[in-house]
Design a protein around this nucleic acid. Structure first.
Lengths: 101, 101
DNA sequence: TAGGAATATCGAGAAAACCCGATATATATT
DNA sequence: AATATATATCGGGTTTTCTCGATATTCCTA
């Protein structure tokens, strides 16, 4: 886990928002029903995209950045990719900052 | 405190190192004696500069960035500026990340 | 008050990040 | 197999960051 890369990933308003939205999907995506029928896999790119106002390619890229540093997990089901927070990693980051920063 | 700006400040190897060095100045600057006679004010720019291998202007700028977002405090005494960590702010950041991220 | 030392600021070239539109890929449906 | 949908990747113009050398400012001392 490269600290610098993690902070770079977090140093962006859009990505920070996405991370926040994924914290409580039912709040931020009220009408959301995962096409696979199981909301526990996360939220698909399209929903995040429509809420963000950014283009599809940008959102896809941003989510990939968050995944690359381990802050979110991706699950591909059918033609959808569902993203959810990696709470373990995020908690670990909090610890890391509290202790080693 | 703008979260994005804080993460930007942290998204750099040099600045992260400086923050770490300032955590235990006596360890990282063994022969260091503050010219003002009081080590508790922090470490001066020149010492940090020599340890970092970066140029004087870069180090001055980096420390200013860290100060701008509140992670360090600066104290000017005579011709020296001493920098020290703002532990309160850093701890608050840890909390922020642990809770709102 | 002139010179020296420490730090800050300025200007700029190079590199990286931002963010888009266009296109490619993967999957599902008919 | 052809089409449609969701997502990923590519290419690139624009903005920001990085990092430096040069210069300015501040403060001390002779």
């Amino acid at each position: 886990m490269d600290q610098v890369e993690i902070f770079k990933a977090l140093a962006n308003k859009g990505r920070l928002q996405m991370l926040n939205w994924l914290k409580e999907p039912e709040t931020h995506f009220p009408d959301y029903k995962a096409s696979c029928g199981d909301n526990s896999v996360g939220v698909c790119v399209g929903h995040i995209q429509r809420k963000s106002g950014l283009t599809q390619s940008t959102v896809s890229e941003y989510l990939a950045v968050l995944q690359r540093v381990g802050l979110v997990n991706a699950t591909r089901i059918g033609q959808w990719t569902y993203y959810q927070r990696n709470e373990t990693a995020i908690k670990a980051l909090g610890q890391l900052i509290a202790t080693t920063l």
